[in-house]
């Protein structure tokens, strides 16, 4: 069953659409990579999914509902880790976790149990009473990650997750993602680091100039592009060039 389903989504910031007719879906327990170069429309697609941008046409179904149909169900069904950490300057780390737990309706015991595990995993136990102004970029990213995993939703949307994290942090994140996958959660991960995507994702969605150019497993992509043994980088470069030829 699809946890997330985009059907012919067209939209953007102004009247000129950034993404056009974007359709794809994510099944339960899948890790899917949303791949594209800078400006391909990855972040815009994500903004349509999380509901900060509304589609001009097309639908986004999450957990069986659109945002308009059931706002509460839609929003409790995912958590989001933005590319640049967005924190409250006036809240401590502990309060960020507490606020998230409150907003998503977690009881206090669950908050305590889950946050203890996450704090240990990301080595942030001793920074509970710190304010974001004292955090490094990587630590800020860790706060976002912990808040997202605290909620334990069926879908995780992660934008450029590895930027700014140290190697241990990256490993902890991958471990967490794996655990959640095993438990049946789905993950949509946007990145332009193609080697990482190739290594960890079950499926890849190739976004180019606002449209889905191809999607599938690595083997399926190799078949589509008639490039046996190709890496994702090879495929991407070919795709970008053929698009250039088509426009010139």
């Amino acid at each position: 069953m699809a946890i997330l389903e985009l059907t012919k989504v067209t939209g953007g910031y102004t009247r000129k659409p950034v993404i056009q007719d974007v359709s794809f879906s994510l099944n339960k327990g899948e890790l899917v990579g949303l791949i594209g170069l800078n400006g391909a429309g990855k972040s815009t697609t994500i903004k349509h999914i999380i509901g900060t941008l509304l589609a001009k046409s097309g639908d986004v179904h999450l957990n069986g509902v659109t945002l308009q149909e059931n706002m509460e169900k839609y929003r409790t069904s995912f958590s989001y880790i933005p590319e640049t950490p967005v924190l409250y300057d006036e809240l401590t780390l502990k309060e960020h976790l507490e606020l998230t737990a409150m907003a998503y309706g977690l009881d206090e015991l669950t908050l305590k149990e889950r946050s203890a595990l996450l704090l240990k995993e990301f080595r942030m136990e001793r920074r509970l009473n710190w304010f974001p102004s004292h955090f490094s970029k990587g630590m800020r990213q860790k706060v976002m990650i912990m808040c997202a995993f605290l909620v334990d939703p069926p879908l995780y949307i992660i934008d450029e997750p590895f930027v700014g994290l140290d190697p241990l942090g990256i490993q902890s994140l991958l471990d967490q993602m794996n655990v959640k996958k095993q438990e049946g959660a789905s993950i949509l991960m946007s990145t332009h680091i193609l080697s990482t995507a190739e290594r960890y994702c079950d499926r890849i969605i190739l976004l180019h100039e606002g449209r889905v150019r191809a999607q599938g497993t690595m083997d399926e992509l190799r078949a589509i592009f008639h490039m046996p043994d190709a890496t994702l980088d090879d495929i991407y470069i070919v795709m970008a060039k053929e698009q250039d030829h088509a426009t010139h």
């Binding site: 999380i50 509901g51 900060t52 706002m71 509460e72 169900k73 839609y74 929003r75 409790t76 989001y80 933005p82 967005v86 409250y88 606020l99 998230t100 907003a103 998503y104 309706g105 808040c147």
Partner: peptide
């Protein structure tokens, strides 16, 4: 103003 995480919370 700018994007805040509470804009995504499942609250009215």
């Amino acid at each position: 103003g700018a994007f805040r995480m509470d804009m995504l919370y499942p609250l009215p």
